[in-house]
């Protein structure tokens, strides 16, 4: 039946479902960032700069998208070991992203911008935090697939799951870049 999906030109249903899920995540962030803009327009708004480490973060997550792509290609070519390595590297990069995120929050705190202060700071914490939750979800999926690849025999039929994991990961990457641009424009 998997082959049926390949035979026929319609989208794979689960992949299609993933895109719908992505659409709803986009709406969530559209809501949060538009709330930011609406609130900012009303004044009583403390100005501060974006934590510079967010740039490093961006490099890390872009790199992780590349290694994720590498993982998918290795899977398609049935190079099991390369797949494991590439996915492990991606996972580590994802964890580094989370750490940098945390350092960014510490940086804000050191500058006196606390989560329970002026909403201008709270928004940055909450928006980047909700994004981090989505990263965390991706990390958990990666960890599961990685562990499975070590304990179970290689099964080329699992490509759909791997591709969906990659799609999701590239999505949270792009989402981060949107947020980076958003912060960069608004925090200066």
């Amino acid at each position: 039946m998997m082959s049926a999906a390949a035979n026929n030109n319609r989208f794979h249903p689960l992949k299609f479902g993933l895109w719908l899920g992505i659409a709803s995540i986009i709406m969530l962030f559209a809501a949060l960032t538009s709330a930011y803009i609406v609130r900012k327009a009303q004044g009583n708004w403390v100005e501060f700069r974006m934590p510079p480490i967010f740039w490093l973060n961006t490099v890390v997550i872009l790199a992780s998208s590349l290694t994720m792509h590498w993982a998918v290609i290795s899977f398609r070519k049935m190079k099991e070991n390369t797949f494991r390595i590439a996915l492990s590297v991606t996972l580590v990069l994802g964890i580094i992203f989370m750490l940098c995120q945390y350092l960014g929050w510490l940086d804000l705190g050191n500058r006196g911008i606390y989560i329970d202060g002026n909403p201008s700071g709270s928004f940055v914490y909450v928006i980047s935090g909700v994004h981090a939750v989505h990263i965390l979800g991706g990390l958990i999926i990666m960890a599961v697939i990685l562990i499975r690849s070590f304990i179970k025999a290689f099964n080329p039929n699992k490509i759909t799951g791997v591709e969906m994991m990659a799609t999701y990961w590239h999505f949270v990457d792009v989402l981060w870049i949107y947020l980076l641009i958003f912060f960069q424009i608004n925090l200066s």
Binding site: S24, L28, D116, P119
Partner: peptide, 19 residues
């Protein structure tokens, strides 16, 4: 998802002390 966004901000206001 937009309602979820509203609820997240509300949860922070109630429990974390945001405004």
């Amino acid at each position: 998802p937009v309602l979820l966004g509203a609820a997240i901000l509300l949860i922070f206001d109630r429990n974390i002390g945001t405004s």
